[in-house]
Amino acid sequence: MAAIVTAEGLHKSFGRQGSTSPPVLDGLDLELEEGAVLALLGPNGAGKTTTVRILSTLLRPDAGRATVAGFDVVRDARRVREIISLTGQQVAVDDKLSGAENLTMMGHLAHLPRRVVRDRVAELLTVFDLADAASRRVITWSGGMRRRLDLAAGLLTRPRVMFLDEPTTGLDPRSQQALWDVVRGVVSDGTSVFLTTQYLEEADRLAQRVALVDGGRIVADGTPAQLKRDVGEAGVELTFASASDAGLVAPALAATIDGARVRVPTDGSVAHVRSVLSAVEATGVTPDHWEVRAPSLDDVFLALTGHVGQERSARSAGVAA
């Protein structure tokens, strides 16, 4: 399959000339195949938003080259803008306008014929379950509804590539689920999706390919299945009253130990979890608390890069100090 978005050696720094601030992008390469979903996964400050801003023509890279559908994002920016849509981290809709007014405005700005705008607005309001609220001002809407309107605004033109910058950050689980369904629908209509996220689960649910970004470069890249195989599916996590209790239990299991916490990799099946718990019970030490936990972004970074994502490690160091 052909790549519809490519980036080669993107560099970007925001510091003034001669300053020592580290680059935001430091030789980032990636590729999105036509009709697929690529998730750019990483912590805050990894360079996700900067990458999206460059690919969507809002920002020029200091070095390197990026194309969308063969058009250079710097030299052919106008052509690129005709075939993409961008939904940024902030919801970009006018609070004082109604939902229908917002969408109609975006349709006109996208230069669609007036009749098409009317039909498409009605269609999207229905698809996104916003038809009932369509004539109310957006300021009265819930966060999830505003996010859906924001996405709808990006879909009026049936873009070839849709950029979504952390689309579910701050959404409740139900709105998150609704948004994932929308993205799947968009993809089945033939749009390629470039998504950034902090959530491994989101990347897993939506993307055919996941690129892990840290410190402005891609540190790992593969299918969600490959990444999960490297990280381990999930773990039974047991928290004990003390580290010595944990030390008594750990030898009975194929476990890693972290203070008073013990983690046993699991496939999540009832049989395996039961066998782990039976083994714990047999030692005679009772945990204060236990749970089956999916790997977090921190786990992924730890497993694939040997360290925690840059900003996170800085933050936890700050907390410890």
């Binding site: 809002l58 005709e82 940024g88 902030q90 970009a92 700005l109 996208a110 230069h111 990006g154």
Partner: peptide, 13 residues
């Protein structure tokens, strides 16, 4: 500052 300009600038306006 609200993100509106980001969206508009990613469009052929």
């Amino acid at each position: 500052s609200s993100g509106m300009v980001e969206r508009l600038r990613s469009m052929p306006v």
